[in-house]
Design a protein around this nucleic acid. Structure first.
Length: 221
DNA sequence: GACCAGGCACATC
DNA sequence: GATGTGCATGGT
């Protein structure tokens, strides 16, 4: 690790400032978005959430009672609409069964136990669980996604094939647990990953350009 | 028309 | 345990 995470964060934050994540009106909307955004561009998720909202289906009970066909139609713009309709229903069932449909009620839970419980829900993997913990429940659980992995791997700070939990620990072992900080850091990593670490990167304007490893960026995994 | 997007579950070897 | 595949819409 040739450079500190604090240094990386500072550069990104000074370049772009607060990212205003998660883009949602309510904690429940965060949860819905966390499922719908799986391997999908946020713009498409926005459409799906708007359709749910306009149909009066943007609440735990409303989704719980929503016929499957209607739910699929409403979330269609987000892609994978059949699997996501099922995943959304499983998650809402969990929320209603375990927390009486209240996201706020989850705040009283022990973070590790809540994370484990979320991972038991069909369709909720590590990133979705951590997004819910951090952005909806406001627990300091670092979120790792494609961009996080790509940015770190391209700069040679991690091996590209390390697993999710190892990357999560990489951050959490080096940072103080702080919801606002984790929030901002992850959002900034998504931004730098999106702008500069894709298949055809544009490193010139990247705030981390002078932190590139010897021999330039690494190939993606 | 190819390629990509803020994953996850499941099949197969 | 590692690797491959299906899921699907919409933007570039």
């Amino acid at each position: 690790m040739p450079v500190s995470l604090d240094e990386i964060f500072s550069r990104l934050f000074e370049a772009w400032g607060p990212q205003q994540w998660w883009p949602a009106e309510t904690p429940f909307e965060v949860i819905v978005g966390a499922v719908l955004v799986q391997n999908t561009a946020w713009k498409n998720v926005r459409r799906a959430i708007d359709q749910l909202s306009r149909a009066g289906r943007l609440s735990p009970r409303a989704i719980h009672t929503c016929p499957q066909a209607e739910l699929e139609t409403l979330i269609r713009p987000a892609g994978y609409y059949r699997v996501k309709a099922k995943r959304l229903r499983h998650l809402v069932d969990f929320l209603i069964t375990s927390y009486d449909g209240s996201v706020d009620a989850m705040r009283a839970a022990k973070p590790e136990l809540l994370r484990a419980a979320l991972l038991e829900v069909h369709g909720v993997g590590p990133e979705t669980a951590d997004s819910i913990l951090l952005y909806a429940v406001e627990m300091p659980s670092f979120v790792v996604d494609t961009y996080t992995r790509r940015v770190l791997a391209r700069h040679g700070w991690i091996e590209p094939d390390v697993d999710y939990y190892a990357i999560k620990q990489f951050f959490e072992s080096r940072l103080e647990p702080d919801v606002a900080f984790y929030n901002e850091f992850h959002a900034l990593l998504v931004r730098v990953g999106h702008l500069h670490c894709r298949k055809h990167p544009s490193c010139d304007a990247c705030p981390l350009v002078d932190l590139l490893p010897e021999g330039g960026i690494r190939e993606p995994a």
